[in-house]
Design a binder for these strands. Structure first.
Lengths: 356, 356
DNA sequence: CTGAAAGCGCTTACAG
DNA sequence: CTGAAAGCGCTTACAG
């Protein structure tokens, strides 16, 4: 915080005095009230410009007991998926005249508590929270004032979730993974792994469910060694590649937890002398920019994080206007983005490619 | 903004009443004053917890005429470079007990004006601005109250800059481009293009200068057709590929404005049947994650945007404590990140590779 | 160590 | 259409 407050702030009182009006009248001008005489308004506006007055919304909000800020707490801003999400949120909030209070947690539950406590002191009207891994509804409630509109994004918060009363926006992980799996099945693959992610994360669990569903519909029961865990990063994933080939027959394809993992697997396979798109098929999830740019381009599930950001902002704005009311849970569609290259068919039957 | 204010806020007065103390005393407890009796303090703290009181920093700041928020206005949050920067800023601000007011402009000068006006109404203590392309110091000054500490990042603001009195943090574009050019020269290239970027953007001008300097030191005068402009995106860059081959002899290498452009060029060359790393050498700038992951991996100039974000936050924090004082201009180092693949030597002399 | 009073910059009834 | 007074939630001298 600054030591010496700068010169002196131009205040509504200054404008009133200069125009020889009461503060109440100037206040009406500021908020565009039709009650004010046009000439008076013009005089005030000229004076405002002349003195370089800037409205102090904090003071106004204090008096009116409202807030036009929304806190946005993101688990990992350096992940393009969440950065895009944040951009979408901010865009929509700004359009609605709200301001975004940003907080990043770096996936640390502890930092999340601190960050939330700090942001809440600024009395946001609502909170959009993309929770750090391992977040717990109980601990969150300790720092969130009751009645604060909250929208949880992307990651469910365990059992108690039903009781939180918070809105939720998620991705259709089940459907997305099912689409990817069906795609590989359609290419003739029968031994399909699910690769990467932490089993206990809700999104991983959901994607695995979609994968299992699709296999089950094709009469296939996944072998235990088709399910390989890894941290959701490229590096970790590359390191887990060998796990796919511990037993024979090995899988011929993998539905990956996300694009980072898929790209890691591509690298890991290359290191083993296998080439994705030639003798192994891979699908991703997220459709990050690299998915299209990598070699080979990655068939993946597209979720449009920016649109999700806009959607999240719209949901919280709605909730601000209707604080009471049953919590809303929304699951956004996932779309298969075929890029004929990473998903080539290679086993058991003659080679052919997906028609996108 | 919300319609119905929720129940009623627990206030410092409530705590004071419950503890049978004056508000002043409770206020002292809140701010950890040593003046308060330990028993009194304990009572107050228990009551605070019991009632779920949350400090209203806005009210406190109003009274104290200070602010602990910093506005962060980013031209393009969906660009990983700026997202990383934002993450670094937020991290450092949060550590210092400040809160980040986020605004995105999407490279629109008009939106930038609106966003700034809106954020300034929240009386931030300072502003970190990564200006939209085409920003003008004069127009910015219209919305920035005089005396507001401002740190401009990454893009200089034209002639008047010297007079703005604003701090500036930039990348060492000149040096970065020089390093890249020298690297290609060392590989034996003599006909080296500078590819992509808008000539009138300050960062492009600086990178071109570094490129020219390096060539000049090697006794080479760049041909006009070695200088190709394009929007700084992958797609636009790919479309400009042909411009490199309009005249013979064509360049054998290109220093690219940034990684996006470089990756676009790689794609554009592939479309023409040329393979980067085999018969053409390319360097990038930024070291975005894709640079390492793309095929072939890209030799590029690394600028560590997250560290730049931390640096920017540190600079503005410092300025908050010393509002007066000459503006600081800082240029961050750039480092060549060699990835033997995209930079192979191919012409005039036998092939060899860079040792990274 | 604690309290009564004034005030930060604004808005909201209530009069006129 | 405009003004005088009170108050949002906090802190700051000033007394005691």
């Amino acid at each position: 915080m600054p030591d010496a407050p700068p010169p002196r702030r131009v205040t509504l009182t200054d404008i009133a005095r200069a125009c020889d009006l009461s503060r109440a009248t100037v206040s009406l001008v500021l908020r565009g009230s039709p009650l004010v005489n046009a000439r008076t308004r013009a005089r005030v506006e000229a004076e405002i410009k002349r003195q370089g007055y800037v409205y102090h919304r904090g003071a106004a909000n204090l008096r009116r007991k409202v807030s036009n800020s929304v806190a946005l707490v993101i688990n990992d801003l350096s992940n393009p998926f969440f950065a895009e999400f944040a951009a979408g949120v901010d865009e929509t909030l700004a359009e609605a005249g709200h301001v975004t209070l940003l907080g990043g947690t770096g996936e640390s539950v502890e930092r999340q508590q601190t960050v939330l406590a700090s942001l809440l002191e600024h009395a946001p009207a609502g909170l959009i929270l993309s929770p750090a891994e391992g977040s717990d509804a109980g601990r969150l409630r300790e720092v969130l004032r009751p009645g604060l509109p909250v929208l949880v994004f992307n990651r469910e918060l365990g059992d108690r979730d039903a009781a939180t009363g918070w809105d939720y926006l998620g991705l259709d992980n089940v459907r997305g993974a099912r689409l990817a799996t069906e795609h590989l099945l359609a290419l003739g693959h029968r031994r399909i792994a699910f690769f990467g992610g932490h089993r206990d994360s809700s999104s991983c669990a959901q994607r695995r469910r979609g994968y299992r569903d699709a296999l089950a519909a094709a009469g296939i029961e996944p072998e235990p060694h088709w399910l390989v865990e890894s941290a959701p990063t490229r590096l970790e994933a590359a390191g887990q590649t060998a796990a796919l080939f511990l037993r024979d027959p090995a899988p011929t394809a993998a539905v990956c937890y996300n694009d980072a993992v898929a790209l890691g697997l591509v690298a890991g396979l290359a290191r083993r002398g296998r080439r994705v798109g030639e003798d192994f098929a891979v699908t991703g999830f997220d459709d990050i920019p690299e998915a299209a740019a990598s070699f080979p381009p990655l068939t993946t599930v597209s979720v449009d994080p920016r649109a999700r950001g806009r959607e999240a902002a719209a949901m919280i704005l709605q909730r601000l206007h209707a604080p009471e009311g049953a919590p809303i849970t929304r699951v956004s569609p996932a779309r298969l983005q075929c890029r004929a290259s990473s998903d080539v068919r290679i086993t058991d039957t003659p080679l052919h490619r997906a028609t996108p």
